[in-house]
Deep mutational scan, measured.
Amino acid sequence: TEELDSELELPAGWEKIEDPVYGIYYVDHINRKTQYENPVLEAKRKKQLE
């Protein structure tokens, strides 16, 4: 659920942004990119696909 997503600790260099226009998204300051999917959940999903 969304509530559990926010409890996950983000990897180093990541920041969660709550924007009133664009909603919640994540900033990867190391690689200078943004995405809507939580990077922790993304990594778990990719691992399940292997």
Rank of each mutant, 00 (worst) to 15 (best):
residue 1 T to P: 01
residue 1 T to S: 14
residue 2 E to M: 07
residue 2 E to A: 09
residue 2 E to H: 02
residue 4 L to R: 15
residue 4 L to F: 12
residue 4 L to V: 12
residue 5 D to F: 13
residue 6 S to F: 07
residue 8 L to Y: 11
residue 8 L to P: 07
residue 9 E to Y: 02
residue 9 E to N: 04
residue 10 L to T: 02
residue 10 L to H: 01
residue 10 L to P: 04
residue 11 P to F: 03
residue 11 P to W: 02
residue 11 P to K: 10
residue 12 A to Y: 04
residue 12 A to P: 11
residue 13 G to R: 02
residue 13 G to I: 01
residue 15 E to P: 00
residue 16 K to L: 03
residue 16 K to Y: 00
residue 16 K to I: 10
residue 17 I to L: 12
residue 18 E to G: 03
residue 18 E to M: 07
residue 19 D to G: 02
residue 20 P to A: 04
residue 21 V to N: 12
residue 21 V to M: 03
residue 21 V to Y: 09
residue 22 Y to Q: 09
residue 22 Y to C: 12
residue 22 Y to G: 13
residue 22 Y to L: 14
residue 22 Y to P: 07
residue 24 I to A: 05
residue 24 I to V: 12
residue 25 Y to W: 05
residue 25 Y to R: 09
residue 25 Y to M: 13
residue 26 Y to C: 01
residue 26 Y to A: 06
residue 26 Y to S: 05
residue 26 Y to N: 02
residue 26 Y to I: 00
residue 27 V to W: 07
residue 27 V to K: 14
residue 28 D to P: 00
residue 29 H to R: 08
residue 30 I to H: 12
residue 31 N to I: 00
residue 31 N to V: 01
residue 32 R to Q: 15
residue 32 R to I: 04
residue 32 R to C: 09
residue 32 R to S: 10
residue 32 R to H: 15
residue 32 R to T: 02
residue 32 R to V: 05
residue 33 K to Y: 05
residue 33 K to S: 08
residue 33 K to A: 12
residue 33 K to Q: 13
residue 34 T to W: 08
residue 35 Q to E: 05
residue 35 Q to M: 09
residue 36 Y to I: 09
residue 36 Y to C: 03
residue 36 Y to Q: 10
residue 36 Y to R: 15
residue 37 E to M: 06
residue 37 E to I: 04
residue 37 E to Y: 02
residue 38 N to H: 15
residue 38 N to T: 05
residue 38 N to E: 07
residue 38 N to A: 10
residue 40 V to R: 11
residue 40 V to H: 06
residue 40 V to N: 13
residue 40 V to C: 13
residue 41 L to T: 12
residue 42 E to S: 08
residue 42 E to C: 06
residue 42 E to P: 05
residue 42 E to L: 07
residue 43 A to I: 11
residue 43 A to W: 08
residue 43 A to F: 05
residue 43 A to G: 10
residue 43 A to K: 07
residue 44 K to I: 04
residue 44 K to E: 14
residue 44 K to R: 12
residue 44 K to M: 12
residue 44 K to W: 07
residue 45 R to I: 02
residue 46 K to H: 15
residue 46 K to F: 06
residue 47 K to Y: 08
residue 48 Q to K: 13
residue 48 Q to W: 07
residue 48 Q to T: 09
residue 49 L to T: 13
residue 49 L to F: 05
residue 49 L to V: 10
residue 50 E to S: 06
residue 50 E to R: 00
